[in-house]
């Protein structure tokens, strides 16, 4: 193992902002943020539809507002093929709804309230994620 590209300060600060967003949503609206649940419910459920859509809109315009303020473009690298991403998207869509949460719902909101169910889910998807990358690098 080599440690590379490690950015502990921005990671912690960004994480604290994510935590702040989750706390605000809980304090004012009484709901725990889980992006997969918010997104899926915005698509399929009538209850809180407008709230869910507004949250998703915020998620999209957040990066735009940030890049206007710091006057810097956000660059991302996606090295995977189109077909692989379609397949990955399907797995993420199925998996997060079958298990009832994703990195935010189980990983932050769930672990934040010490839910054993969420701790088990998070450990599981992290181990499988690590194994998937290991196998992908091997092939």
């Amino acid at each position: 193992m080599n440690i590379v590209n490690f950015t502990p300060v921005t990671a912690t600060l960004g994480g604290m902002m994510i935590g702040l967003a989750v706390v605000i949503f809980f304090l004012f609206n009484g709901r725990l943020v889980g992006i997969s649940s918010i997104a899926a419910n915005a698509l399929t459920e009538k209850e809180n539809k407008f709230d869910n859509l507004l949250f998703l809109l915020g998620l999209i315009i957040g990066p735009i507002i940030f890049s206007l303020f710091v006057n810097k473009d956000i660059s991302i690298t996606i090295s995977n093929s189109f077909i692989l991403l379609i397949f990955a998207g399907l797995l993420v869509g199925l998996g997060t709804r079958i298990s009832g949460g994703c990195t935010s719902g189980h990983g932050i909101s769930g672990i934040g309230r010490f839910s054993l169910r969420s701790i088990i889910a998070t450990i599981t998807f992290m181990i499988v994620g690590v194994l998937t990358v290991l196998i992908k690098n091997f092939i």
């Binding site: 995977n80 692989l84 991403l85 397949f87 990955a88 998207g89 399907l90 797995l91 993420v92 869509g93 199925l94 998996g95 997060t96 079958i98 298990s99 994703c102 990195t103 599981t124 998807f125 992290m126 181990i127 499988v128 994620g129 690590v130 194994l131 998937t132 990358v133 992908k136």
Partner: peptide
């Protein structure tokens, strides 16, 4: 399933 999709993409 989620972990596999996350690791792929």
């Amino acid at each position: 399933l989620f972990g596999a999709g996350w690791g792929l993409g």
